[in-house]
Amino acid sequence: MTTSIKKLPDTEQVLSGNGACGGCPATMALRMVGKALGTNAIMLLTPACSVASMGMTPKLGYNWPCINICFATAGASASGITHAIEIMKEKGRLQGELPTVFSWVGDGGTYDIGFQALSAAAERNENIIHFCYNNEAYSNTGVQRSGATPRGSFTTTTPTGKVQPKKNMPMLMLEHNIPYVATATVAYPGDLYDKVVKAKNISGMKYIEILAPCYLGWQFDMADTVQMSRMAVRSGAWLLWEAENGKISFNSPSSHIINGKRDADPVNEYVMKQGRFNRLLNGADAARRIAEIQGDVDREIAFMRERAKIMI
């Protein structure tokens, strides 16, 4: 059973009055991560919104030791920190439970710029948690396309809509044979919380990706952040799943879509609520463009359904 809202701990690791936009999904997600990880953790960040959200020196908006690192280096830097901690423990300079080392990185820093170092860390099975909060673009620099931007989406570098589909990054991480991979999103806080608690107690490499609908990049009303996250899941545009030692299982409500107990909502409503899509959906080829977006979603559902059957 998923942890209910009332059972979530009081711990607040994201402090009020930080620098994030109102309604920020990254901050929303990080709050839940904080409840699961607690205070004994070290956070690494690559350049992104969540760095800007830390606020201004000498104040810091997160209640962890935070290390701001170069864009490409989350995998390498987090590996270095865990090794250092292990050696300090060996030498008796650190006692008690070792802190959890985690990276908090955007989709740009995960799918694109940080991919090599992350892949290497995964292949070495380093004892870290890599979080990708995925707002499907480079939001902090004014919304440029990334490998996570879905087809048909407007960004400042795809003014007529992105031509290529997004890549399946969680699946790529799973193919590194790491002990834990999970996807989550802000509308399902208990699901996210449980996955982080699980990851914290597994040794080796863990990858958790959180869909983070960003009103600024996606162009919707900021009060609808959670609603947008829910619509992404109900339409199957985002699937909730986790894989322990390579075995994939789906979480509610995505599990119902996968096993056919419930039809995914058509993507129309989800897509038309977002300016990044609907600003391009006025012309004669609107129907073709929507069909293309629907096609990508359908393919992904079909692929994941079949992939999950492989349990060797």
């Binding site: 620098g19 606020g55 000498p58 104040k59 810091l60 908006g61 209640n63 935070c66």
Partner: peptide, 18 residues
């Protein structure tokens, strides 16, 4: 030493954004 410390209001008096 770290250059920043955890504190509320790291982004200022954000209530004024409302």
């Amino acid at each position: 030493r770290p250059i920043s410390w955890p504190m509320k209001g790291a982004g200022g008096e954000t209530g004024t954004w409302r």
